[in-house]
């Protein structure tokens, strides 16, 4: 049995001061990712509740589960939601969704809401991909790229190292700073070659933390290269699973010489949040409000 190192804490949240019954438009977004799924419900465009759960092998089931989770501590039911948009890798497999929209569009929209209209550059590092998005003050995408071919620069790459070094994923960030001096980054980009390079370094007597630091900075460098392709402009926000790995984020910030905005909510919900915002806009369009 493979050990699970790539597992972020699951979360759920309900607003304490919104009564959905007084709401005019109740919209939802579900982001079915390769590793985790999120559901967000908005009441008139205000965050009402959300949940973040691990994705199972079956996308429709995961979508259902994460939605149930979001509604769990509320008295809102699925039938009361006017419009639902699915996004993410499993976006076409959300059984109760009215429409599917790409994670690129949803992330930009979600980040615009989460961090405010000053956000221009968004980096989303997920379990199996890495997205770099540039958007305008309305959260409309102006430039993007998505790398889901290569494991380098994705959660999967980190997972390979978590596994190699037997370090739980939540501790990787902190541990990677437990070095006296920042080592040279691992020279291979390819995860497979980087792994054999790391094995060589361990054999040379490098402590785990140092190897981890070397990989974290290699990963940060690679992500910066991707970002530079789409143009980095302030404000800058990091979302997705790796946003929680400060070892990589801090190194990206220092290489870019730009600090990422502090999030108020679980950064993994950006996609689902954007989807819920699109759902609201689609209802408005339907009702002839836009």
């Amino acid at each position: 049995m493979e050990k699970e190192y790539w597992r972020w804490p699951e979360s759920r949240w309900t607003s304490s001061d919104i009564d959905w019954k007084t709401g005019d438009i109740i919209s939802a977004g579900v982001d079915v990712g390769s590793v985790s799924s999120q559901a967000v419900v908005l009441v008139d465009g205000e965050l009402f509740c959300y949940s973040n759960y691990r994705t199972g092998s079956d996308s429709p089931e995961s979508a259902q589960k994460v939605m149930d989770k979001a509604l769990e501590e509320t008295d809102l039911t699925l039938e009361k939601i006017h419009h639902t948009v699915g996004t993410g890798y499993g976006r076409v497999n959300v059984p109760f969704a009215n429409r599917a929209i790409t994670e690129i569009a949803c992330h930009a929209r979600g980040a615009n809401f989460m961090y405010g209209p000053s956000v221009r550059t968004i980096l989303d590092m997920g379990g199996q991909d890495c997205k770099a998005i540039h958007c305008d003050e309305k959260g409309k995408v102006t430039n993007f790229l998505m790398n889901d071919k290569c494991a380098a620069g994705t959660g999967r790459g980190m997972e390979v190292f978590a596994d190699l070094l037997s370090i739980p994923i939540e501790e990787m960030g902190k541990l990677s700073f437990k070095v006296e001096k920042e080592p040279e980054p691992v020279s291979s980009t390819c995860v497979i070659f980087a792994k054999s390079e790391a094995v060589g370094l361990l054999r040379k007597g490098w402590p785990k933390e140092k190897v981890l630091a070397a990989y974290s900075s290699a990963m940060a460098h690679r992500v910066v290269e991707l970002l530079e392709r789409i143009k980095v402009e302030k404000d800058f926000a990091v979302t997705g699973g790796i946003a929680k790995n400060e070892g990589v984020v801090k190194r990206i910030e220092s290489e870019l010489k730009i600090e990422a905005l502090e999030p108020q909510h679980d950064t993994q919900i950006a996609g689902a949040l954007g989807a819920a915002l699109f759902a609201k806009a689609l209802v408005e369009k339907e009702r002839g409000l836009r």
């Binding site: 430039n143 993007f144 790229l145 998505m146 071919k149 290569c150 070659f193 690679r222």
Partner: peptide
Amino acid sequence: AHYGYKDG
């Protein structure tokens, strides 16, 4: 829209 990838 950038389609494609960056690998090693």
